[in-house]
C-alpha cells in the first residue's frame, strides 16, 4: 500500500472542491461556509461529533460520509480509496 501523500491530497481536495463547503487551512479559495471549518484536525477527538478521529476513519468519512454517519448532510465524494487517504493526510498536516 503506497504511503499517503499530503500534497496529492491537496490536489484531490482542489479537484473535487471540498472547500466549497469547508474553510480548509492551506486552501486559499474558496472558503466555503456550508460545513464546519477544518482547522486543527490533528487535535480533534471526534469526527462529525461521533466518530473516533483516526486516519483510516477520516479517510473513509471523506469518501463516503453517509455510510458512516447516516443522516449526515455531508455527501459521498468522488474520491478513490487512495485519494481519500491522501486527503486525510493533508487535513492532518495542514490543520496542525
Amino acid at each position: 500500500m503506497p504511503v499517503a501523500d499530503a500534497s496529492r491530497g491537496k490536489r484531490a481536495i482542489e479537484r473535487v472542491g471540498c472547500a466549497s463547503c469547508h474553510t480548509i487551512p492551506g486552501i486559499g479559495w474558496p472558503k466555503g461556509e456550508a460545513g464546519p471549518p477544518l482547522h486543527g484536525m490533528a487535535e480533534r477527538a471526534l469526527i462529525a461529533g461521533r466518530l473516533a478521529n483516526r486516519p483510516g476513519i477520516l479517510a473513509r468519512f471523506v469518501r463516503d460520509a453517509p455510510a458512516l454517519v447516516p443522516g449526515t448532510t455531508m455527501p459521498a465524494m468522488p474520491l478513490s480509496e487512495e485519494e481519500s487517504r491522501d486527503v486525510a493526510a493533508f487535513l492532518y498536516e495542514s490543520g496542525k
Binding site: 473535487v16 472542491g17 474553510t23 466555503g32 461556509e33 456550508a34 455527501p75 459521498a76 465524494m77 468522488p78
Partner: peptide, 20 residues
C-alpha cells in the same frame, strides 16, 4: 470554477457567496 459533484453542488447552494 468548481467540479460538478454532490458536495460542490451543496456547498454552492448553501453559500455561493463564500465561493464566488
Amino acid at each position: 470554477i468548481l467540479p460538478n459533484n454532490r458536495g460542490t453542488m451543496m456547498g454552492w447552494i448553501a453559500n455561493s457567496q463564500a465561493i464566488k
